[in-house]
Amino acid sequence: MSSDVSYTTEDIAKLLQISKLTVYDLIKKGELPSYRVGKQMRVDPADLEAYKKRAKGTQIQDRHGQSEAPIRSAAPSLNNGLRPIVITGQDLSLDILAKHLEKSNAGIRPLRSFVGSLDSLISMYRGESDIVSTHLLDGDTGEYNLPYIKKLLVGSSYMVVNLLIRNAGFYVQKGNPLSIKGWSDLSISGLRISNREKGSGARVLLDEQLRLHGIKASQLAGYALEQSNHLGVASQVASGLADVGVGIEKAASIVGNVEFLPLIEERYDLVVLKTESNQTWITSLLHILRSDEFRNELGSISGYDLSRMGEILLET
């Protein structure tokens, strides 16, 4: 196989029929050697084959022709002494945070996993991620994130710290031809919606509002058709394929030809597990969130309320 061929984490997930978060977990543990190209992690075919043979318990030879015993445990040296830190979520602020963390901590390698809020918390419970972002509304209490975190991370020692606050609401077509104003208007007969995937914060927000307003999901045409990000939802509305979608303000400004109707301020929080091995970079994380440099960089991006950034909301 040509030496210039390599696999992305998505490729590996498909080939091994596992989740991308499991691939990141293998990289974190050092069981799957990897390297970074831009923001993407890559794996060489030879390293993938070596991992598969080790997983099967087959004796293999290393690149120098020496016999290598089958292994199933972590091999820290495979990451050149750098500890991978998996950061989940899709907001641009997380890419900036990863850059600052890498700059401030010579011993870590930030990895980005673009998954939704609920899947992020589940991945943390399974030990597959280190910093998870979440914006999940509990409709009964009106509280963001904490009710879900407390239920999912039972028995864990963790910290919840705010990253930012941003507006969430509706994307509607230019001129708002259906005069949509609020959640109750989702009951309009024949309304076509562009929806997000299960587990995402926007999907939870929609489902909670449908429940609170007594609207059946089956009433909404397109409810079962899922987009993987806010831009996809906004684009569906802008192109006329949907009448409404739920998302954040920033995507509307990027897509254009769509109007944004703010309906709720959502709190976008970070969750980290408090372990002895994490303590060094947790201290660095808090320092970054409270630094003028990081605040100024995020402040240059419209749509972010940074008034509570770095505030610890819950610590167990």
Rank of each mutant, 00 (worst) to 15 (best):
residue 124 M to H: 03
residue 62 D to P: 08
residue 84 P to M: 04
residue 76 P to C: 04
residue 119 D to T: 11
residue 57 G to I: 10
residue 122 I to K: 14
residue 67 S to F: 12
residue 115 V to W: 02
residue 67 S to A: 11
residue 114 F to E: 11
residue 93 S to Y: 02
residue 58 T to I: 15
residue 118 L to I: 05
residue 84 P to R: 02
residue 97 L to Q: 09
residue 122 I to H: 11
residue 92 L to S: 12
residue 70 P to R: 11
residue 75 A to Q: 15
residue 81 G to R: 01
residue 107 G to L: 08
residue 45 P to T: 06
residue 85 I to T: 03
residue 51 Y to D: 03
residue 109 R to D: 03
residue 64 H to A: 07
residue 65 G to L: 07
residue 105 N to W: 02
residue 62 D to R: 06
residue 78 L to M: 12
residue 76 P to K: 10
residue 120 S to G: 11
residue 116 G to K: 08
residue 76 P to Y: 10
residue 79 N to W: 00
residue 76 P to M: 07
residue 124 M to F: 03
residue 83 R to P: 00
residue 94 L to H: 08
residue 117 S to M: 07
residue 90 Q to T: 15
residue 67 S to K: 12
residue 70 P to E: 08
residue 84 P to W: 07
residue 75 A to Y: 01
residue 85 I to S: 02
residue 61 Q to R: 15
residue 107 G to W: 02
residue 79 N to Y: 01
residue 87 I to F: 04
residue 103 K to M: 07
residue 115 V to S: 03
residue 70 P to A: 14
residue 63 R to P: 01
residue 54 R to W: 14
residue 116 G to F: 08
residue 87 I to T: 05
residue 48 L to Y: 09
residue 44 D to V: 04
residue 103 K to L: 09
residue 77 S to Y: 14
residue 51 Y to G: 04
residue 74 A to R: 12
residue 61 Q to I: 03
residue 64 H to K: 12
residue 116 G to H: 06
